[in-house]
Structures are given as C-alpha cells and as structure tokens.
Design a binder for these strands. Structure first.
Length: 109
DNA sequence: ACATTGACTAATT
DNA sequence: TAATTAGCCAATG
C-alpha cells in the first residue's frame, strides 16, 4: 500500500467544496495527472480510489465521491444522500442520485 | 506466481 | 431507463 497515493486521493476528496461532488474516475484522473506532473509512476484507476477511501475516509467528506452513474457508494448510500441533501447538492427528482451534470466538480473551480 | 476480490466504468441489450 | 457483460488496476491470500 502506498501512503503517498492514499494521501493524494484524500487530498483531492477533501478539496471538493460542499454542495458539489466528484466521481471515482475523476479523482483517479486528477491523482494520475498530479503524479505524472511530479514525475512519479502512473497510479491506478477508480477501484484503487475506492479502496483507499474504504480504508481511510474517516477524515474526508467521502459522501461527495460518487460513481459514474451519480449514485453514492452502496455501503452508505442512505447516509451519503442525507449529507448531500443537507449540503444542497443537486439531486435527481427521485433523490436517489446526484445530478452529475450540475454537481460535478473539478479542482480548477 | 495464480486466483479472488472490490466504495468502478463503459458498452450492450 | 435499467439490467447484463466484459474490461479494468492494484491489493490480498
């Protein structure tokens, strides 16, 4: 397990502003880009991001990280949605998933 | 070294 | 729009 990678992932997640969200794939890309810019070897994909969060998400707003379909992790979806709703994150009419079109955030904003 | 697993994604149906 | 299938990458046993 690479702590540097985990730290990079958590850093990105922690940077997501309230009321916005980001996908696993996007996090993976940002981390990969940063690693590349730092001259480090390329990192893993979305699944590794999930693995890192599963392990050390205690200190970060993990509920702002959703899958490509806009659905929160299957493990805590109810609680994640509660957080998102409380933050005013754009959700679909049924309130079961995030409206990525409007809520997706990229580190440039 | 091989098989299994998972907080994933994209293409198909 | 939702369910299936196949591909994916690294960690674990």
């Amino acid at each position: 397990m690479d702590e540097a990678y985990a730290a990079a992932v958590l850093d990105v997640v922690a940077a997501v502003p309230p009321g916005r969200a980001i996908t696993y794939g996007l996090v993976a890309e940002v981390v990969a880009d940063r690693a590349l810019a730092a001259g480090l070897p390329s990192r893993g994909g979305p699944r590794q991001v999930g693995q890192v969060l599963a392990r050390g998400a205690a200190d970060v707003p993990w509920w702002r990280v959703v899958n490509a379909a806009g659905s929160p992790p299957a493990h805590h979806r109810a609680q994640a949605l509660a957080h998102l709703r409380a933050e005013g994150t754009p959700l679909t009419a049924d309130g079961t998933r995030v409206r990525l079109r409007a809520a997706v955030w990229f580190p440039d904003d």
